[in-house]
């Protein structure tokens, strides 16, 4: 009896320590990034830092405008094709495909999620970049290449979460809709998808977060020129790439500017997470 109580107490202490450690790690990282990055943003001025297109750190010109736009451009272009494709695949898996086929598809999607990002980058570099160079022009290292690779990488997130959202819709909705004389597709598009919309929005925002934070694959296929891209075929540098490319030799204000880039990214992700929790809360209030 006594021994049981003792071991239970120990387990509880262990759990508390583990939970505390992860929370502490997050707090320390956050404080550190802000501590290193904020002074430079204050020095340069937040407007200038965010919107100035001139990034010449050796000259003391720290504007990440081109990178902010680069990140947004690559992310947006990847979402443009992967969101519709992902949602359609989710509908197929949840509603249309026979269970066996849906199961096979689910395994492939899992596989897609498990591939390391450097492999995606390598594939992009060897296959997609030359394809763009040969068929569309430019050097191949481009916004488009980044958008294609990133889109493939965030498909699993969009597919899995959308599919779960669709599967969570009570089957009574479908029965009722069919009993009113609706076809299967009318039921899907007019009842099931609207009912699952908060889950699908969550899927999109999480995909967006993943896309904006992705570094290695994007770094390998986008060319990384720190200038504003003037077309889909132009090279581009994202905020994440900016940090990786220059952290090896940066010092002083330059290093601080990289931390400041990290701070901006961090704030982006926090905003996206807030958007997810708001959308999920809206979903529960609708009674789903």
């Amino acid at each position: 009896m006594k021994k049981n109580k003792l071991s239970e107490g120990l387990v509880e202490i262990l759990l508390r320590i583990s939970a505390g450690a992860s929370v502490l790690a997050i707090i320390i990282i956050t404080v550190f990034i802000f501590y290193k990055g904020i002074p430079l943003i204050a020095k340069v001025g937040i407007i200038d830092f965010l919107f100035n297109l001139k990034w010449v750190p050796t000259n003391g010109s720290f504007g990440i405008g081109a990178m902010v736009i680069g990140s947004l451009a690559v992310t947006f272009c990847s979402l443009v094709w992967s969101v519709p494709l992902g949602i359609m695949t989710a509908i197929l898996m949840a509603e249309i495909a026979p269970p066996k086929l849906a199961d096979v598809l689910a395994r492939f999607v899992e596989l897609l999620a498990g591939i390391p990002s450097v492999v995606y980058g390598f594939f992009g570099l060897i296959v997609i970049v030359p394809f763009i160079r040969n068929h569309l022009g430019g050097v191949g290292l481009s916004v488009l290449a980044g958008a294609i690779v990133l889109g493939i990488m965030i498909l699993p997130t969009i597919i899995n979460i959308s599919r779960d959202a669709i599967l969570a819709i009570p089957k009574e909705y479908k029965e009722n809709s069919l009993a009113l004389g609706a076809t299967h597709y009318q039921s899907i598009f007019r009842v099931i998808l609207p009912a699952a919309s908060s889950g699908i929005i969550t899927a999109i925002v999480l995909g967006l977060g993943r896309a904006i934070g992705e570094t290695m694959a994007v770094l390998m296929v986008t060319g990384n020129a720190a200038v504003l891209p003037d077309s889909l075929l132009a090279p581009v540098r994202t905020m994440t790439s900016n940090i990786v490319l220059e952290m090896g030799y940066a010092a002083g204000d330059h290093q601080a500017a990289l931390f400041a880039t990290g701070t901006v990214l961090f704030i982006f992700i926090v905003i996206l997470n807030l958007a997810v929790s708001i959308s999920m809360k809206a979903g529960t209030e609708n009674g789903n």
Binding site: E172, T183, N288
Partner: peptide, 20 residues
């Protein structure tokens, strides 16, 4: 079948209103 279900309506055990 679609036309049949238009002619033959159904009310289920648990009222299931659509989220609209």
């Amino acid at each position: 079948v679609v036309a049949l279900r238009k002619k033959v309506g159904m009310v289920f055990q648990k009222p299931s209103v659509f989220p609209m």
